[in-house]
Design a protein around this nucleic acid. Structure first.
Lengths: 372, 372
DNA sequence: TTTAGCACTCGCGGGGCTGGGGTGCTAAAA
DNA sequence: TTTTAGCACCCCAGCCCCGCGAGTGCTAAA
């Protein structure tokens, strides 16, 4: 259905490092391209030579500008919807704009304050993520998306059992003060409280401090190993642990294996004329619900670390054709935990939105850093 | 902003009982109204006298039909978008259609099977609700909405405490095998495990079998009463209980007091031409996110019990102007727990959708009935 | 009460016209 | 070689107009 491969995008350096790719385009042309895109982003209409000229300090005639712009068109950076309309940036134009030309507008401290203030460090992780997503969408007026932090890495702090009924046992996994998970497991027979306590003790000894992945490994090797031993306690313990840790879909949702994300402000997208086509919009929204495609994209940009920008086709997904996706990974303790970003029409105010995404990612990382 | 009062709607009897309000409109006119609405629902275009006639067995001339339809228009049941277009039902027309004329098409057993099969009785409540909502939207091709069951009534089965850190304690509330809640509470000092166990024992004695409301009552009276006593254990127990039960926003979300709902398939709405106006649609979606208005509406129809149908303005909320809302309350043990329904354009296939909502409500009720 | 006949009304789609913003090209100027 | 003025040209957007078709309301006769 959709082409599932995104072109590798080199990661964006916020501080506007000049890089290769500009060789054959002189400074004046760059300036004009930059102004053209800025203007187009501002008011969404094809910009003609006169208007373009008016936005620069250049002392030139429109005719000259026309020549330059014609060059830009030949290079594929700009394109005119029909003869005798102004020019509109192409995806490649945007690409160059972002890689070399854009003048990032840092958030003014007020905005940073609100962001920082609204991200409540004391909330549990799920709420925190939700919050971040909503802030992102609020600040940028686009759709905000935050991937849940990659839980595999979180070390287990405590495990407890509670008998529920005849052969149901409630397992409680404590990771930290904000993250506690419950799982109901089905046992072959009834267990008493003391027995469960001993099992818990045993497992705690074994597992505390290990992350879920390590725990799973451990269990597997134990299961292979214990064939000969007949210690009943250990047997039960391992059986239970197996159910707890491999029985996916714990009550809190299966966020740790399959990844998941939280979106906010999708309705913002309904405000932009370039998104006016209801059926396309619908497809986009449905992709948001399916999650798979978006998730793949987020995964990719998480691996790339730092900021990533996908313009239109670059994402590789048809539904995102006239959208741009700006992501930044967030990390704690020097480890990438996830990725967040915004999705909006290709024509967006990159100069404001890039730093917004950047800052949010850093803030979120900082908060998660305080937990372990 | 939106008019917050919905007209009281008499509840709908599925079996099509003839009731008052039809006095001054003879059988033939009724038949014509019914056919007109059916046809309009089918293909969404104003229906003229000839077309209308073709859909009935009546041996009449178009002219006669025109006369009758003109009467219907005078009664406000039908309305023509401009001279020389066919007629379109008004809200009142739909009202009469639903109250007196509609011929409900029972779901064919296959559909019931799927519904029943897909509603997984073993899932926890949250998943179950999600599922119901999604099924509802899938079957009807509208937006499905299910209110979370009203938790106040669920009796507590067990409460346990676990020390987390210096002065954090994890409280675990078990209601039944599908519903377990965690809450982290902040204590003034550190508690040891044995102490917590004694507190839990005490609270279990007091609270088991009571629903959350009763528990809260109990705590309040205890707090007033225990001033004189100085039993330290009891004091701590009550303090903790207070935090657990009145500290709203437990980790699982605050579903029990403020109500909440789960929607699914909102994108379905984007398929209907009558919803083509993006800005209106956006307002609608935003209302879905705000939740407040929708929640009020659901609350109202829950109190009314049984099925409720709001056509256009009848809901009292501007955003729902050209929408109909069909709800049915669901109950277990003869107690209304919540309400579910669908939201879609006024022009919807009531004959199919009414039973779908009805059946889903009954199925959900039946499943919840097995828990206590 | 029903029906045929008829004049009338609108919405919709297509065609033609116009104005304005914008282009590309050419030839001259810098 | 680059810049510029001039010019012909293009084409979209809006507008008006017109004709068609579906459907109506009214009237007068059955």
């Amino acid at each position: 259905m959709t082409v599932p491969q995104a072109k590798a995008k080199k990661s964006i350096s916020i501080d506007n490092a000049p890089e290769g790719g500009v060789e054959h385009i002189n400074e004046r042309a760059q300036l004009l391209l930059k102004t053209l895109i800025e203007r187009y982003i501002r008011d969404g209409q094809p910009v003609g030579s006169k208007a373009l000229l008016a936005d620069t300090q250049l002392d030139l005639s429109p005719a000259t500008v026309r020549n330059v712009v014609a060059d830009l068109e030949r290079l594929g950076l700009v394109h005119s919807p029909h003869t005798s309309a102004g020019r509109v940036p192409t995806e490649q134009g945007y690409r160059m704009f972002i890689d070399n030309l854009v003048a990032i507008k840092p958030l003014h401290s007020g905005e940073v304050q609100t962001l920082a203030g609204q991200l409540d460090a004391s909330a549990d992780t799920a709420q925190l993520i939700e919050r971040a997503s909503s802030l992102l969408s609020g600040v940028t007026q686009m759709a905000g998306v935050v991937m849940l932090p990659f839980q595999k890495q979180v070390p287990l702090r405590q495990i407890e059992f509670l008998p529920l009924s005849e052969n149901r046992v409630l397992a409680i996994l404590v990771f930290n003060e904000q993250d506690v998970q419950n799982r109901v497991i089905h046992t072959g027979r009834a267990y008493g409280l003391p027995e469960l306590e001993r099992i818990a003790n045993y497992l705690n000894e074994q597992f505390i401090g290990k992350d879920l992945n390590a725990v799973r490994q451990h269990i597997l090797s134990e299961m292979r190993g214990t064939r000969e031993h007949v210690d009943r306690l250990m047997r039960s313990a391992i059986d239970m642990a197996h159910q707890v840790f491999d029985g996916e879909a714990g009550q809190q949702g299966s966020q740790d294996r399959g990844h998941d994300y939280v979106m906010a402000g999708v309705t913002n997208l309904m405000g932009y004329e370039e998104m006016a086509d209801v059926t396309r919009l619908r497809q986009l929204f449905e992709a948001f619900n399916e999650k798979q495609d978006i998730l793949d994209l987020l995964d990719k940009s998480m691996q790339a670390q730092g900021m990533q920008i996908f313009i239109g086709h670059e994402s590789g997904y048809e539904v995102l054709d006239n959208c741009s996706v700006i992501t930044a990974s967030y990390s704690a303790n020097d480890e990438v935990l996830g990725v967040l970003g915004v999705i909006g029409p290709t024509r967006m105010a990159y100069d404001r939105i890039i730093p917004a995404v950047d800052v949010t990612a850093k803030l979120l990382g900082a908060i998660l850093n305080q937990r372990n």
